[in-house]
Design a protein around this nucleic acid. Structure first.
Length: 569
RNA sequence: GCGUCUGUAGCUCAGUGGAUAGAGCGUUCGACUCCGACUCGAAAGGCCGCAGGUUCAACUCCUGUCAGACGCACCA
């Protein structure tokens, strides 16, 4: 991809002494208003270096910059050097590049040979998959696609919550009040009911807790009955999760959950011991983090059993050994931030240089009606329910607007699910979200369906053009795209590669989500103002090239945030 | 109490030190004999929580403060 800023900064640097090209490059910015130019150099910082007033610098530069291939003219306005690009040249370069790059537009090989581990979704077995899990799943999946697009080899891990004392409770409850038939019919719903009943009964009869503990001990010791029930619960849960993953079009490369590390923690504890990091405190074994300004990291309970930090440390070491990752990314709620800071620090204290490659990607908390989500109190909305309602609503719209659409059920699925994912990835991930049916089912404005519709609209025009025998052979006269709507659309399309990079660097898919809305808006303005399929063949071809470039960018971008881009909706 | 995060238009949110702070929803007005109106245009709506400081320049950085969320030892 050619880089105008690079070319312009080179030219400017050659006119300014004592400042190198990179500095100029970093100073160049986009003016707030297109009438002020395409690029601007604020000259205030240069003022100190050159010991001249900013206005003077801008003036001198304006006089020193000759017209050339790239630059149409420059102006100095109160200390800013405003640069107007040669529009036709710019449009030509951008569109040629996009059309040539095709499906690879915006991609790179920066990650070649590097492995990225992404830990996301990670639901707790025997618990329903609700809105809260969507965030981790959607963000993780998008990061996976973005890194892959940039040449990295990604390993998606669903770190299932498939171990812990809750299984003792579940087995106890099942033995007491459950039966095979009811679980086979009710699936997770029945498991949750058993779990809830356990807690209700345990309030009256505390001996149930002992019984649960015993069952968990039997499970740990490999008791056959306990293990087969445990495996069965996992099986049931995974089957249900898989339905959701299929709908979301999300995949994993590994399902190694917590239980996978049961037999791998002991050497790690030994290692911590040998490195002198373990300390005894109130009967438990901890890594003291006082000098790091954090509470201690608990490694072993006073009864000698392990904790989640133990498991996470073990898993990280295992992943480093197995995948030799360049980065290992954990997509979990912000409430776990301290936990991650703590055990990342423990990895550092163990002497592992790669502690700096561990990233916690936190996201804000989901609530419903001001209350926290809680399986036990029933304050949850199941993701499946949301998805099916969204799909249903989309289907209604299709029946209304385009009843003869061939694969309407497939399209309704892609748009309905897309709407849900899109709204989840729309704002910065750190923001708390309050779930509301009205918002999730509102498809107007800055939404997935809006972007998908825009993409389909572009496809439709291209289809019509192809039917009429127009050929898109890459040749077009960029000087014919002279309106401000056309230029604006080209400019936003040119920014795509940088947006992908930003999303990757900030581990923030919302950067792309919002970018797509901007593209769709600019496309629709252009579409509204100008006829594309005009009689003038040269003009038609130029506009078709622009439509094709926009269509490509939209479809690639949608894919990167985990959405489909149907050609007809 | 300590720590982290968040406070921008009525609502939901953008804005990684630069010029006049932007979108969508909602409200009001307007555009379909026209390539798909799930579209587009216009208007109204702002002490950027508050107070100091740094800087030529602060919504952006620093300090304090208020409000909310989350976390702070044997759950994950």
């Amino acid at each position: 991809m050619f880089d105008v800023k690079l070319e312009v900064s080179n030219l400017l640097a050659s006119k300014i002494s004592d400042v190198d090209q990179q500095q100029i490059y970093d100073m160049l910015e986009t003016p707030p208003n297109p009438e002020m130019g395409d690029l601007a150099l604020p000259c205030f910082k240069l003022s100190r270096i050159l010991r001249k007033p900013p206005v003077q610098i801008a003036q001198d530069l304006a006089a020193a910059i000759p017209e050339n291939e790239n630059i149409e003219r420059v102006e100095n306005v109160s200390g800013y050097l405003n640069i107007f690009l040669n529009k036709s040249q710019f449009i030509n370069k951008v569109l040629s590049h996009i059309l040539k790059a095709g499906e690879t537009y915006g991609s790179s090989d920066m990650g070649k040979g590097k492995n990225i581990v992404i830990d996301y979704s990670s639901p707790n077995i025997a618990k329903p998959f609700h809105v809260g899990h969507l965030r981790s799943t959607a963000i993780g999946n998008s990061l996976y696609r973005i890194f892959e697009f940039m040449g990295y080899n990604c390993i998606g891990i669903n770190y299932l919550g498939d171990w812990g004392t809750q299984f003792g409770k579940l087995i106890t409850a099942y033995k007491k009040w459950g039966n095979e038939q009811a679980v086979k019919e009710g699936l997770i719903k029945e498991l949750v009911a058993l779990y809830v009943k356990f807690h209700q009964e345990a309030e009256k009869d505390p001996s149930l807790e002992d019984e649960a503990r015993q069952w968990f001990v039997r499970l740990e010791q490999g008791d056959e009955e306990a293990r087969s029930l445990w495996k069965w619960f996992i099986e049931i849960s995974l089957e249900e999760y898989q339905k959701v993953y299929d709908l979301l079009d999300v995949k994993f490369d590994s399902y190694n959950g917590e239980s996978f590390f049961n037999d791998k923690m002991e050497p790690v504890i030994k290692e911590l011991e040998e490195k002198g990091l373990l300390k005894e405190s109130q009967g438990a074994r901890i890594v003291d983090l006082e000098e790091d300004g954090m509470p201690p990291c608990l490694i072993l309970k006073s009864d000698g059993s392990t904790l989640y930090a133990t498991r996470d440390i073990t898993a990280a070491i295992y992943r480093k050994n197995t995948y030799n990752f360049d980065k290992c990314i954990y997509v979990t709620g912000v409430s776990q931030s301290l936990h991650f800071r703590q055990w990342f620090k423990v990895i550092e204290k163990m002497g592992y240089e790669w502690h700096k490659d561990l990233y916690h990607v936190p996201f804000g908390t989901v609530s419903i009606g001001g209350e926290k989500l809680a399986t036990r109190t029933g304050n949850v909305v199941l993701l499946e329910e949301i998805l099916s309602k969204a799909i249903e609503k989309t289907l209604e719209t299709i029946e209304l607007k385009n009843p003869h659409l061939e694969n309407k059920h497939e399209v309704a699925k892609q748009m309905g699910v897309g709407a849900v994912i899109f709204s989840d990835l729309y704002s910065n991930r750190i923001k708390d979200v309050s779930f509301s049916w009205d918002e999730v089912l509102n498809f107007d404005g800055e939404t997935g369906p809006y972007v998908q519709y825009t993409h389909a609209r572009a496809c439709s025009v291209l289809r019509k053009a192809a039917d009429a025998g127009a050929e898109l052979d890459g040749a077009f006269d960029s000087s014919l795209l002279s309106s401000k709507e056309e230029y604006q659309l080209v400019k936003i399309l040119a920014g795509f590669p940088d947006k992908v990079k930003q999303a990757l660097e900030n581990l923030e898919p919302s950067i792309l989500t919002r970018y797509l809305v901007d593209v769709a808006q600019d496309f629709n303005r252009f579409y509204h103002e100008h006829s594309i399929l005009v009689d003038d063949e040269a003009l038609r071809n130029a506009r078709l090239a622009l439509v094709q470039a926009a269509k490509l960018t939209l479809s690639i971008g949608l894919r990167l945030i985990g959405l489909h881009a149907p050609e007809r909706v």
